[in-house]
Simulated scan of single mutants.
Amino acid sequence: MTKHITLFEPPPQDKSRAQIENVLDLTPVVDLGPDVFTNTRPLWHPPGARGIYGGAAIAQSLSAAMRTVPADFAVHSMHCYFVLAGDSELPILYHVERVRDGRSFITRTVQARQRGRPIFTTTLSFSRVGSGGEKTLNHATPMPDVSLPADAVPGTVKALSDAGGGPFESKKAGIINRNQNPEDKRVRRFVRARSRISDEGGFQAHLSALAYITDSFFIGTVSRVHDIPRFSSPADLQKLLKALKNPSDLDDEDITKAFKELKEEEAADLRRQLEGALSNANKEDHKELGMMVSLDHSIYFHNPLAFRADEWMFVETESPWAGEGRGLAIQKLWSQNGTLIATCTQEGVVRLKQDKPPLSKI
């Protein structure tokens, strides 16, 4: 059976829009119904992942749902389940169901399907902008006292529209409470969409970009707070690089840079792990990651109109619990001016390599 990466021939990249807008572009499939869409361009399969990058399914489902609601409604919550690994060599069909249309709230569900089977499902709730009234209760966790990257100040670097590479970029901001218990550690980063998001995309384009970015570095927090690297050796990295499929939103230079950063980031953790294993005669203490797969993902959009996804956003991630072969991660995102814009949760399978065969398989 011949595989088709996209349902229709992809058009040329629209250079008036940011790269992340092109990556997340959807095409209506009118022959199947008014609320069915498909990915316009090929989707990325990250090295070592079981399927496509989950952020693409999250963001494109959000984008599809937003096409069915009035412009004065903005998403405030999104609850997702990863059902099956998405195949980057097949098109995805996004089916939107109009569950409810109210005066203040609208509900949608979206199923992402391949080969007729759901691989991803989400329920979204939208609220009318300003429907809370003039008097409201207000509080928010303040952004930690951190220094923004140097290029957050206008004029310090070349314009974002001139930048190259993947659809978004990140910069490490350290790990807080590194020497404390795993549940007390906080992993910090700065993230932003690369190049300027177009005015034509509106706030919806920024929300889709934010949704895409939230799946990056997320469930991996569980292993990070335990000082367990994702890749245990350079050979593992090379093996996964050779298996790379459809790097449609990454170029060779960006892939090299990403793995160089990963190598540097995990080098200290791996060194401590190996030193500990060599100095400890009890080899049962050695822990090596066997499987890491996202199960569900929720996003609460607090201020959907109060940020730009192409400006640096500060992310702080923690893991309050892990057990039974699963782990939970929570992340908060602040805008460049310190506004809390979203809170996300994600649970996933996080299994260690076992000396004995596991009782069950996914």
Rank of each mutant, 00 (worst) to 15 (best):
T2K: 13
K3N: 12
F8S: 08
F8W: 09
E9N: 08
P10H: 03
P12E: 08
Q13N: 00
Q13A: 08
R17K: 15
A18T: 10
D25Y: 06
V29K: 10
D31M: 00
D31I: 00
V36C: 12
V36H: 11
F37G: 00
T38R: 06
T38L: 02
T40A: 09
H45N: 11
P47K: 07
Y53D: 05
G55H: 11
G55K: 07
A57E: 06
A57H: 03
I58V: 15
I58P: 02
I58D: 01
A59V: 00
S61G: 09
M66G: 05
M66K: 05
M66N: 04
R67T: 03
T68Y: 03
V69G: 03
F73S: 14
A74T: 05
A74Q: 08
A74D: 14
V83N: 14
V83H: 08
L84W: 09
H95Y: 14
R103L: 04
R103F: 02
F105V: 06
I106N: 01
I106H: 01
T107L: 03
Q114L: 08
I119A: 10
F120H: 04
T123A: 11
T123R: 11
F126A: 02
S131E: 08
G133H: 04
K135S: 10
N138P: 00
T141R: 12
P142K: 07
P142V: 01
P144F: 11
A152S: 15
G155V: 00
G155P: 01
A159V: 12
G166Q: 12
K171T: 11
A173S: 15
G174K: 11
N177Y: 13
N179C: 04
E183V: 04
E183N: 12
V187C: 03
R189K: 14
R192I: 08
R192S: 07
I197L: 13
D199G: 12
F203D: 09
Q204K: 15
Q204M: 10
H206T: 12
I213G: 00
F217V: 08
T221W: 09
V222A: 02
V222D: 02
R224V: 14
I228N: 13
S232W: 10
K242A: 15
A243D: 15
S248P: 04
E253H: 14
E253W: 04
D254R: 13
I255T: 10
A258D: 05
F259I: 10
K260G: 13
L262I: 07
K263Y: 10
E264L: 13
E266A: 01
E266F: 02
E266S: 09
A268C: 00
D269A: 12
R271M: 09
R271I: 03
R272G: 05
G276D: 15
L278W: 12
N282M: 06
K283C: 01
D285Y: 04
G290K: 12
M291Y: 08
S294K: 00
S294F: 10
I299H: 03
H302C: 03
N303Y: 01
P304E: 01
L305H: 10
V315C: 09
V315S: 01
V315E: 08
E318K: 13
A322Q: 13
A322F: 13
G327K: 05
L328T: 09
K332L: 11
L333K: 02
L333S: 07
W334Q: 02
S335K: 01
T339R: 15
A342T: 04
T343P: 04
C344Y: 07
E347K: 07
V349M: 12
Q354P: 00
D355R: 13
D355K: 14
K356T: 14
P358I: 03
L359N: 14
